[in-house]
């Protein structure tokens, strides 16, 4: 074989391999910001029985600290899963949600709004046009850390999230209390907080996806004194109204929830703790029961494992 032919073959082979690797690791529904978290969440969801979930929670850490599927099961018999994770952006939520459609057919999706108000860029430097071109052509260069989502069992057993992922269905328990002493963060605030363009794109994507799959989409703002405010509320409420999507801002309902910022937050008002999540989930459960025809699966043979998990967790009584 001539040297020149060898070099050409080598380069062609390399480009083919690059394309194959790129196809294998690239997100299937657009771009994502945090490929590791997205893949970990998708792996966790795969452990659930196919087409067994009626409700999915989506969002960032505000979501997986506030909404407890196991409590929702114990109180309402609604099988659900929390797809939220730390620092997820809306593009990540969109990818996870779309991928969840391969194994689940939920009737309702509750999208926590903190991710909506954050930038949803995909970790690319917009100025670096050349690098972006190469990454668009061969996404392996952008998503090369995909492997970090694969953790050995020994590590998973110790990992805060993984050790109870299947039992708690994506919810994270934190009982620590670090009170919030700040002012009334939802007091009248005229600051304009528009939804970032990048988020709007994926928000519309989520809305369209839900419409296509005949899923009821609900926007929900988990109580967060440190990150939420009136301006953000107005922006989300305006979008929800315009698109005829129900919007539930729990920051305006702290009295109904009986939420106490001295007791119910783990980090000075940023996230609710376990006690806060109990109040939030209780309210959400009642809201869903009153407004949506979601079946109570308690006593259903197919959902026996939910009872087992509830007992294992030892957090909620019927």
């Amino acid at each position: 074989m001539g040297n020149r032919l060898k070099y050409i073959l080598f380069i062609v082979g390399f480009l083919l391999l690059l394309s194959a690797f790129s196809y294998a690791v690239a997100p299937k529904h657009g771009e994502v910001y945090n490929i590791t978290q997205v893949r970990m969440k998708m792996q966790a969801l795969k452990a659930e029985r196919p087409f067994s979930l009626d409700l999915l929670f989506s969002g960032d850490s505000e979501s997986y600290r506030a909404f407890s599927p196991l409590q929702l099961w114990a109180e309402q018999g609604i099988p659900s899963y929390n797809l939220g994770a730390s620092a997820l952006r809306l593009c990540d939520c969109y990818e996870i949600l779309c991928e969840s459609g391969n194994s689940q057919s939920p009737k309702v999706v509750m999208l926590e709004t903190d991710a909506i108000m954050a930038e949803s860029g995909t970790h690319k430097d917009e100025e670096d046009i050349l690098t972006n071109c190469v990454e668009d052509l061969f996404p392996i260069f952008h998503y090369h850390i995909f492997y970090k989502s694969y953790l050995p069992e020994a590590i998973r057993k110790k990992d805060l999230y993984w050790k109870d992922a299947h039992i708690l269905k994506g919810f994270l328990v934190e009982k620590m209390v670090r009170p919030y002493f700040g002012p009334d963060y939802m007091a009248e605030d005229k600051r304009l907080s528009p939804i970032p363009e990048s988020s709007l794109f994926y928000l519309n994507g989520i809305k369209d996806y839900c419409a296509k799959k005949r899923i009821s989409l609900i926007l929900v703002s988990a109580p967060s004194a440190a990150t939420w405010n009136e301006g953000k509320h107005e922006a989300v409420a305006a979008w929800a109204k315009e698109n005829d999507i129900p919007y539930l801002d729990l920051n305006l309902l702290t009295e109904e929830l009986d939420l106490d910022w001295n007791e119910d937050t783990m980090d000075e008002g940023n996230h609710v703790n376990f006690s806060g999540s109990e109040k939030v989930t209780k309210y959400i459960g009642e809201y869903l029961r009153n407004n949506y025809a979601l079946e109570d699966h308690r006593g259903d043979e197919d959902y026996e494992d939910w009872e087992i998990n509830r007992e294992k967790a030892g957090l909620y009584r019927i």
Partner: peptide, 9 residues
């Protein structure tokens, strides 16, 4: 390419 510390993250 895969294990290098560059780019996203």
């Amino acid at each position: 390419i895969v294990f290098g510390a560059y780019g996203s993250g």
